[in-house]
Design a protein around this nucleic acid. Structure first.
Lengths: 335, 335
DNA sequence: TCATTTGACATTAACGATAATGTAGTTATA
DNA sequence: TATAACTACATTATCGTTAATGTCAAATGA
């Protein structure tokens, strides 16, 4: 009734449990005919190895934990899938969990759960605004003391784990220069609360062109559609009209902003140009298609995975590494 | 160096392993002072129970597997999160994997992996077009023979597992009636390849009003933005102008269709009204806001969970059950 | 021919946790 | 006072799997 075990196969074939184990793994010291009979019996019983038992005795699970925020963001999904694929090529399974930006009890429990399953490594990404804060820091410390390698990305580095950064300063700088190059002067940066790398790049570009940049923080939980729309509505109420151009924290918020603009009767880009970050698929299908900045997600996932894999196989043992990834402009009609 | 075990705590405190186990679980037969000392030592060592070992000896993992397609669809995400929450309330953890519609090797491997981790139950959802096909059927059969309860949803029932259906026939019927009620007569249903429940509901409503319905199948892998846009472009090329109204297979394809319409210079809804299914968040922020049909996702997730939970705790042992869930119109500006 | 190698298996121990059972020492009961 | 009952532990067995040894007969070599 329950799932078949090696013992069941052993009984059926009339050999010892160990012989079954070795036969199924094509190890030496097993007769040809015995091997055949074992495999047949295994197939007949629908045998499936118990990974829990295996990871117990092997002292490794061949599993890595992947924890990201905003898992419904298409960009994340694409990343997760690529990463799963790279890991699989190296013989690792991936357990994915989704985190929230606010460091809730749920986040901690979800990560604890991965550790309780004895993952061999951990990848944590896209967490904002809580670098070095107690909860994440404590997890990282525990991982270090247990010798579990961790790679983080999309979050300011902590020094406690390998880190792949996306160069958002440069991205914002590039994006701002593009917007400025279009001839706009009254440019507003719509920012999320505690994230300022992009803002700094924006301000840098503005300063170099001696334009006074405006950064609006809408101070909400995350850069979602609704928050962004609300922020633009508030902006309009305060200033009476939109800026000439808006750079949004990401594509999703850019779309929220465009929606609000249109709702109030403004045209994009004629009355207000809009650009975002991430290059999500939806952006290309909005009206107007969204100008944005993004990167090759395959390269990104591969970079993150290799960082972790080098720790897993022991080929890298030094102090925490730090890599930076570049983004490229995608110019469409919104700006 | 490695993670702390009960044995480590036992050694530190000077008691037996079993005493430690019982102390941490607040079971009787343990002295007050011993209990304290054990807990202190556990905290000091950063002890975290090994779930693999626990599930081995308990013969249950308190974990259920959740497999859905299109995990980047916001609707799915919301569902997954609610389900996780309900399961947690019942003491179950959830392992989530994402499937593809085409029944690839990856799908099977991912499900096998869940089974190999000895999940206590399985929830599979949003798989199209392969009901009763070998791969899924075989998995369901294996689950049955291992006594692992399964609940499926968003896919035609198989008779082999409990099933929660969304009443897409009725939904399409409602939606079509709304569109007809708006006065449109030349209405096209943009369908995905192998899914016809919605189409049937649409045609039924059309027939009742003696209007000739048109159903276009764009025959692609999934109802994504790009496929939908391509389909509408093809429609325009073929007919020279859009229909008066379009009902799309889902909100995502509705947006793709609207994007294509606008790209060719047509206005929505003036030149062509559009409606979709699902009520995704993006729809409310599109220009124009999308008319759609959806349901309370909390209720849906709870329904699915309870079906499985009743099997897990043995309160339901009969043959496969089948439930149907109703959807409600969300009328916005696009139609 | 007898020691030695080799092939093909069986046996044992271990992983970490838990349940069932065992056992001193104390307390309560007859 | 003898014995049962209880307290607070320790011991042992078990889950499914794998690695490290053990074992025995046949094949090989000197």
């Amino acid at each position: 009734m329950a799932a078949a075990t090696l013992k069941d196969i052993a009984k059926l074939v009339g050999v010892s449990v160990n012989t079954v184990s070795r036969a199924l793994k094509d190890k030496p010291d097993i007769g040809l005919e015995t091997r055949e009979r074992v495999k047949e019996a295994a197939a007949a019983l629908g045998y499936r190895p118990n990974l829990n038992a295996r990871s117990l005795v092997l002292q490794k699970s061949s599993t890595i934990g992947l924890a990201v925020t905003e898992a419904d963001n298409p960009v994340r999904m694409e990343f997760c899938e690529k990463l799963r694929s790279y890991a699989a090529d190296c013989g690792y399974r991936v357990l994915t969990i989704s985190l929230t930006h606010e460091w809730s009890k749920g986040n901690r429990e979800a990560l604890e759960d991965l550790l309780a399953r004895r993952v061999d490594g951990l990848i944590i990404g896209y967490i904002w605004g809580l670098t070095g804060e107690q909860p994440l820091g404590k997890i990282l410390e525990e991982c270090r003391s247990c010798n579990i390698p961790v790679t983080v990305f999309g979050t300011p580095e902590t020094g406690m784990a390998d880190c792949v950064e996306i160069d958002f300063f440069d991205s914002a700088y590039q994006l701002a220069n593009h917007v400025i190059g279009q001839g706009y002067k009254d440019i507003a940066f719509f920012n999320s609360s505690a994230h300022s790398t992009r803002e700094s790049g924006f301000l840098q570009a503005m300063a170099e062109h001696r334009i006074k940049g405006r950064a609006v923080r809408w101070m909400t939980n995350g850069a979602g559609l609704e928050n962004a729309a609300t922020a633009m509505t508030a902006y309009l109420k305060k200033h009476g009209r939109p800026p000439e151009a808006v750079i949004a924290f990401n594509d999703i918020s850019a779309i929220g902003i465009m929606a609000a603009l249109k709702q109030h009767g403004y045209r994009v880009p004629e009355d207000c140009a809009v650009a975002g970050f991430d290059n999500i698929e939806f952006g290309a299908y909005y009206d107007p298609p969204l100008t944005t900045i993004g990167f090759d997600r395959g390269v990104f996932a591969r970079t993150v995975w290799e960082l972790l894999f080098n720790r897993l196989n022991g080929s890298e043992t030094g102090p925490a590494k730090r890599l930076k990834l570049h983004q490229e402009l995608v110019v469409r009609k919104s700006c």
